[in-house]
């Protein structure tokens, strides 16, 4: 039945989003942790966690791409799933990400007056927090 199909796909999309957020948080988070502690070699536990995060992100990405491909031929379903509420929540999520990126950049700029911070670490942290904010915001706005 078409009705339940839209809801099933919407629920599936919410699920990808949750797992993609978890995967991204874990995977990229391990890079930040490694840089912060300056380990010469990454501990095996952390490597395992990194791989797990990467796998979660990969599977979520594949499922999302499959959904996108399914919707490509169904204009009505695509219109319903990518409707104005979805667009509105997407805009708000990217807005939140923007503010976090600006805020974190400002904090690093202030710190740079007193400390020398590696540029790569700064870039990674800004990228990580910006991306995570967008994902978490979308999850929050998308909730029932």
């Amino acid at each position: 039945m078409e009705t339940s199909m839209i809801e099933k796909l919407d629920t599936a999309r919410s699920s990808f989003l949750k797992w993609a957020t978890v995967g991204y948080a874990i995977w990229f988070g391990t890079y930040i942790v490694t840089d912060l502690f300056k380990w010469p070699e990454i501990p095996s536990v952390l490597q395992g966690v990194r791989i797990l995060g990467w796998l979660i992100l990969l599977v979520s990405g594949i499922r999302a791409m499959k959904l996108k491909r399914e919707l490509r031929w169904d204009k009505k379903m695509r219109g319903a799933l990518e409707g104005e509420l979805h667009q509105y929540n997407l805009r708000r999520s990217f807005q939140m990400g923007f503010f976090v990126v600006m805020g974190v950049t400002a904090v690093f700029l202030m710190f740079s007056l007193f400390y020398i911070i590696p540029a790569l670490l700064v870039t990674k942290v800004i990228f990580y927090l910006g991306g995570l904010t967008v994902l978490i915001s979308k999850m929050f706005y998308n909730r029932d």
Partner: peptide, 24 residues
């Protein structure tokens, strides 16, 4: 859900409009 299907949106859209959280 039925209303959403007739209009061509998701049930969440109808729910957020109904509860005043989203202006259509």
């Amino acid at each position: 859900e039925e209303l959403a299907a007739h209009i061509g949106v998701t049930r969440k859209t109808i729910n957020t409009i109904e509860t005043g959280k989203f202006v259509p």
